[in-house]
Design a protein around this nucleic acid. Structure first.
Lengths: 120, 120
DNA sequence: TAAACAATTGAATAAACGCTCAATTGATTC
DNA sequence: GAATCAATTGAGCGTTTATTCAATTGTTTA
């Protein structure tokens, strides 16, 4: 029993394929970061927030009114997006304005929208 | 009380901004599909599977051995990816080979990897 | 300095999710 | 046709997570 099938009850069928893919495979860190990025984008409320901020800088109340949700719920999601550096904020008096941190996310969204539009 | 703040305890601060964004905002269906797509990509195991299939067509046992997981766990994830039409399968005897369904997902992944690499 | 209000935070709850385990299906081969 | 093996499936379990609710912070203004 080799280390390859410690966790797999099957006999390895194509060892050459496995070795080939293993030699090209990314390290854990980028894999984990990419899946975490997608996980953060993979929520309806956060998707809507990012969409909205793609059109205009907005404060918490505006987003809450637009999405017909409480500002508490929105604020919780904004924190997650801010900590992932997907959005940034600036405070003017009592009001905090949010906007997209950079263009990468918009590019990602555009391709994702193209993809799902083809299916419709 | 207007329909806009039924669910928001704040008074609307920038009605012009809300109306502007609302006029450009996507319908529910594409939003839901995009967030579902990202949700599916946002899991470490599924990210690894997609990565692997980007390099080579592989059977369930091969993927299980590569990722050091049970073929049951892999099969469950493959079903989710197959139902989302992210991957496709072909059977040869007892063995089922999986591969990426199209290039969209790879493009999405490349941009995502670029994005996370900049942060490192 | 007290009231008002936008925003944030923490705890609690209910729903969603990934893996395990056991059983089953589908296909080959002896 | 019985045994074997890759793959699939369903139930169960523990974990994660999005929202709600109540309390608090930070800033303005009366």
């Amino acid at each position: 029993m080799t280390s390859e099938n410690d966790h797999c009850e099957c006999s390895v069928i194509h060892e050459d394929v496995i070795l080939n893919v293993k030699s090209k495979f990314p390290h854990d860190e980028p894999i984990i970061r990419v899946s975490e990025l997608f996980k953060i984008l993979g929520d309806e409320t956060r998707t809507r927030i990012i969409c909205a901020l793609g059109f205009s800088e907005m404060c918490v109340c505006d987003i809450a009114a637009l999405l017909k949700m409480t500002s508490s719920a929105i604020s919780h999601q904004l924190r997650i997006l801010r900590e992932s550096q997907i959005i940034k904020s600036r405070r003017v008096g009592k009001v905090v304005y949010y906007s997209l941190a950079d263009q990468h996310i918009e590019k990602l969204f555009n391709i994702a929208f193209e993809h799902v539009m083809e299916e419709i």
